[in-house]
Design a protein around this nucleic acid. Structure first.
Lengths: 212, 212
DNA sequence: CGCTTCAGTGAACAGTCGTACACTGTTCAG
DNA sequence: CTGAACAGTGTACGACTGTTCACTGAAGCG
């Protein structure tokens, strides 16, 4: 064999290359405007070889969601651990969020773009994961509000709002100047605002009395 | 002339047909996956005639933003008037929001889709309008918090969060079953949740003390 | 070692795309 | 009434698309 790689490893490498290349191409366009040929060409294989890995671009899109969601889940785990070590829940969460977006911008850009984008299956896949995330956050909130008997509906409503605030922060981070030089101050401003928003919501929770 | 229309009127009618058709095609796909030919075909003209109205699909997209934004601005005006008549600011705003989305789903779908979509110029145009909207809301909030000397930064942060909550409600409304039958209860649930979220934020504002 | 498996190749296909160009026939101003 | 303006037509082009098929040659198994 050419390198120190088995055939299976080489195949997996090509597969990953296809996914990576698609993620990079997505940066300036939407998924359903990217052609199979373009992906194959950029990955350095012939169009027909694409079918050895995915049966269509749509299917690649769905698998790309899974891939990216692993990042997001990692973020959530980190955030939970951050709570334990950092003390302040909000500060810790926002910090983890900032780091993850900085480290995997393409993945988050893909998720944000295709969340409302063209391909139905992809949209669904992202939506499912996001709903799951909201539910988990609602469970966390339930623990924090134990004794105040919040209805599960109110918990979900609050989690939904918090997720919306975090998503807005992610989106704003992604639209910063890609050059890392002039970027830092803005990045901190966005993260600070996000933290403030979460704190504002937390304050509201303290005064909340359900009315239904 | 064939109908009771001048040439200029006929031209304007075709132009509008192109815009409308594009809006309808956008429902299931993203702007940059729609071809000029498809738009022309659906509008009932030959591809080359398209150029009599727009110099490219991208330019049509930008003008479509302007068109749709007129709806959004109308919504804002209605909401402001609703405040005066309805008494409760939040209830009135959410009600107007629900009505507008129900009446112009395609326009809102376009704005939401292309807000993070492929075409840069379109994205920019939408972003500008949305930022403007947030600023106006911040001004409204300033009036409501007069005497509590909120910093303009905090006002903007709060307005940003409220806009995020409203956008989330709009998005959820758009993803409802298109069939009007089984739709009403879900629609009310989404609007109620949105109203609760705004109320939660308002409660937070009552307790807010800036820390910088 | 020989045989099979299979990731990747290359040519060919029927379509669609954006755009150029010369045109037609109605509208409208002078 | 005459001529220009111009919304819309029809044809043609080269480029690109997704998918087919028969193929090659190295990897991996018995």
């Amino acid at each position: 064999m050419a390198d120190g790689q088995s055939r299976a490893e080489r195949k997996e490498a090509t597969r990953q290359r296809l996914l990576d290349v698609t993620l990079r191409l997505i940066a300036n366009r939407s998924l359903d405007s990217i052609s199979l040929r373009e992906v194959a060409r950029t990955a350095g294989i012939v169009p027909t070889a694409f079918y050895r890995h995915f049966e269509s671009m749509d299917q690649l899109g769905v698998e790309l969601v899974d891939d990216c969601m692993r990042s997001l889940r990692q973020m959530i785990r980190d955030a939970r651990r951050g709570v334990a070590s950092h003390g302040d829940i909000i500060e810790g969460t926002i910090e983890v969020l900032g780091r993850q977006v900085r480290e995997h911008p393409d993945q988050f850009r893909f998720l944000v773009r295709e969340r409302y984008g063209g391909v139905r299956q992809v949209r669904r896949a992202i939506d499912t994961e996001l709903t799951l995330f909201t539910s988990e956050l609602a469970v966390d909130l339930a623990r924090l509000t134990a004794g105040f008997d919040w209805s599960s509906e109110d918990l979900e409503m609050t989690a939904d709002l918090m997720v919306a605030a975090m998503l807005k922060a992610i989106i704003d981070l992604l639209e910063l100047d890609p050059k890392p030089a002039r970027r830092r101050p803005d990045e901190q401003a966005i993260l600070n605002r996000g933290a403030k928003q979460l704190r504002l919501i937390a304050l509201g929770m303290g005064e909340w009395r359900s009315k239904d």
